[in-house]
């Protein structure tokens, strides 16, 4: 696995520097099993069964896998131009007429630029508007203009909004029809391009609003969402070599949060760690922390996530290593915690 072998800081000086562009299309590891544009294909499939589904984008169809839908259903696809306020206002208008819009752009633009439109036009009337945000967290090396490191923190405060942070192609394929079927607005943290297929070996199915225990373990419990569930599973395997037995609980729905399942797993003697591709402010960690405190469980939780900073530009493997999302860094952190 590349991230465990190629990015330690000590070796960086001797190696050619990685290129930002190397990972633009996909964050998959070399040789990893992937599925191409799972969102686009899932939307086409859902649209075959539900003629109310329409798609729209703000000049980022090709970069959010919406182009797959646009090619399959040109008459059900609306290009809104690079105008995110229009994109989501119009999505609300389409939903007002009984349609089920999926509107895509990058997460930064949805969360930062168009919040007022999503909040008042879609969420307050509880319309079935489905926000599809590309490049969530640290999935691009373009720097803070493109890195949506605080998108969940922004969106969690929006009443009525369902937030889904999928791990892989299976999560996305199974989530899309459920998002279409759920009544109110939703936000999907899109993974695009060649998306890893990870959860097929775990007897897993995506259920909106549910956390799932992917594997058991006696020493540590990982609570993770998004692509960090992939890293959590990899880290669990790596930790086994250190005789550390790690459980992994995948919580793809961040809101409404399945506190019941998560608390049951956390209320043990195991070291509890959250893993998220998001700032440690306002995302999965604080969602878990608030559930723990609300339940009166005096349990320490260790956060693994992005720092409360504007992040560097660069190549993703370098950045994931730098900010602690790599498997190596996860393993080191857990071993240090266990002393």
């Amino acid at each position: 696995m590349s991230t465990t072998t190629e990015a330690p800081d000590t070796a960086a000086a001797a190696k050619p520097k990685l290129k930002t562009s190397a990972m633009i299309a996909s964050f998959a590891d070399p040789g990893q099993k992937t599925s191409n544009a799972p969102f686009g294909h899932a939307l086409v499939k859902a649209a075959q069964e539900n003629d109310k589904i329409v798609g729209l984008t703000a000049d980022l169809g090709k970069y959010t896998d919406m182009h797959i839908f646009a090619q399959a259903y040109p008459e059900r696809f609306f290009q809104m131009g690079m105008a995110e306020q229009l994109l989501f206002g119009a999505a609300a208008g389409l939903a007002e007429t009984g349609l089920v819009p999926f509107a895509s752009t990058y997460s930064v633009f949805a969360a930062r630029r168009a919040y007022d439109f999503l909040c008042l036009d879609a969420a307050e009337p509880n319309l079935n508007v489905n926000i599809v945000g590309g490049l969530p967290g640290l999935t691009t090396g373009y720097g803070p203009s493109h890195q949506a490191t605080e998108d969940m923190a922004i969106f969690r405060g929006m009443p009525n909004l369902t937030i889904v942070d999928p791990c892989d192609s299976i999560d996305i394929e199974q989530a899309v029809p459920q998002l279409a079927a759920s009544e109110g607005p939703t936000y999907l943290r899109l993974l695009r391009g060649n998306v890893p297929t990870v959860l097929d070996g775990y007897g897993y199915t995506f259920e909106l609003g549910k956390a799932k225990v992917l594997r058991g373990g006696n020493d540590v419990v990982f609570i993770s969402s998004g692509l960090m569930t992939m890293r959590a599973l990899q880290a669990a395997k790596a930790l086994a070599a250190h005789n550390v037995d790690v459980a992994v609980v995948h919580t793809p729905t961040i809101k409404p949060f399945d506190a019941e399942t998560v608390l049951k797993e956390i209320n043990t003697d195991r070291l509890a760690v959250t893993l998220e591709n998001h700032s440690v402010v306002g995302g999965l960690f604080e969602t878990v922390a608030s559930a723990v405190v609300t339940a009166g469980a005096g349990k320490r939780v260790v956060p693994i996530g992005l720092p409360d900073q504007f992040l560097d530009a660069g190549a993703l493997p370098t950045l994931h290593e730098r900010y602690g999302l790599s498997v190596d860094r996860i393993v080191a952190k857990v071993l240090a915690e266990l002393g």
Partner: peptide
Amino acid sequence: ISGGSLGHGLTIAVGMALGLRY
């Protein structure tokens, strides 16, 4: 619609007109 945050109405109107026509 819920107005009040100004500049929303015409964006929603665009979506409604698209949706009705479709």
